[in-house]
Design a protein around this nucleic acid. Structure first.
Lengths: 136, 136, 136, 136
DNA sequence: GTGGTCTAGACCACC
DNA sequence: GTGGTCTAGACCACG
């Protein structure tokens, strides 16, 4: 479970954690019953305040994505059913559109943009995709 | 000058304006000396409070991208020389990488992602690439 | 009619004019029927925008202290009956109290304060009560 | 530390706070290192919004009169050396002169004014001049 | 008509 | 608990 924070974006830190955990859980990267890092550990790893991680976990629990058990840790619930393909597509589409808008404002041509995208896509393979579960 | 806001993203409204204006100015969509819509007008068009637009303009002025003149309006500075290609590329690369991370969390395969990206790219053509989009 | 503006005080410029004219009128320094300087002249003398003077005059007219006659000028109305002594006293008392609070915060002793007050009082007789009040 | 607000004066609330704290700090009523009431507490006590107090504290920090520490509170700087007597005198003189101008406009005679002033001076003694007023 | 300022409420990050 | 930020509404000064 890898979490990337962007402090310049203006998106609340705790929400970035919530979304990334939620997506990972919903897509199968995190499986039901699997444990999340403790608040203390994750806070250290991300170099942020423990309260912020705690807030993220509280929100995740409120949404039913994880379950926090006193003294044992936080675990992914089975409620976090995999997202349907259509939902996942609409989520990623929204983010892609942000790229298109920015490229437009930067006057980057479509051809050029596609080229850059493909370059990044190739480089972005830090982990080999072992389990290829394609839930529907 | 077209500005697209995303209220769900968590990115402060005024920053979205700042970035889009800055990119437009820096990329040549807005030319030096050209006037921006007045604070009131833009606020009305985007259906947000005047202060939010004012804050964006103040920030843009602080960054040297525009010049605000009492009673006359806001104008693009000539300082805002077009960004070098390398800078533009690094900006768009950062945004693209966010897409890749999210796709990874959503377990969307690279092939699938590329396909969706190309689909959106085709649909996203609000104006002809020849560019007459620079009058308000 | 002498008007002193204080731009650092935070009190709206137009209100400073309103109050000073009103007090002068109500206390007899300005008599009923007497003419006030034209908006243009007063604006020049105070080095402020004509609109600001206009706003002050509008407010004074709304309160019934003066009457503005198109093309002729602004005149003190007879409605502006002299304030009763009790009213004048309460007005000046409020201002005096501000002095006391400030002196307290500055840790100026009562004796010292009284001394300074008397000194200023003596020096503040730039004009003989007869009629020297009309030059800037 | 006692703060008196006057909402009718037109002077911005946050500036009234700034001045009173500054004078108190500069005159020794508040000593170096001493803590100010927290933003929330002071806002509650004065029955104004927290932001207004926050703005006052920010301005005080900008002027170097206090130091604000996240999560701990606001403290008087040791820089805030007591004002010289001459400075204090010029500050109070300015305020006194405002009284004289208003009295003039109200046609209050000098004798009468002095009498009122002395009356107020006698009544204005919230604490013994020996000063135990410096704890909250 | 133009931009600027003050006050307020809600939310965030941190100790 | 602490301070900081973003959005909003009302008012002001100015051309």
């Amino acid at each position: 479970m890898r979490i990337e924070l962007n402090f310049k974006s203006g998106v609340p830190t705790y929400l970035q954690i919530v979304e990334q955990v939620k997506y990972a859980a919903a897509s199968g990267v995190l499986r039901a019953g699997e444990g999340l890092p403790s608040i203390r550990i994750l806070a250290e790893r991300l170099r942020i305040n423990r309260n912020t991680v705690a807030k993220a976990y509280t929100e995740l629990e409120r949404q039913g994505a994880i379950e926090v058990i006193q003294g044992k840790g936080a675990f992914v619930t089975d409620k976090a059913s995999p997202l349907r393909k259509s939902v996942r597509d609409s989520l990623i589409t929204e983010t892609i559109d942000a790229v298109l808008v920015q490229a437009h404002h930067l006057q980057i041509s479509q051809d050029e943009l596609l080229e850059i995208f493909q370059q990044r896509l190739e480089k972005f393979t830090p982990v080999t995709p072992k389990s290829e579960e394609n839930h529907e």
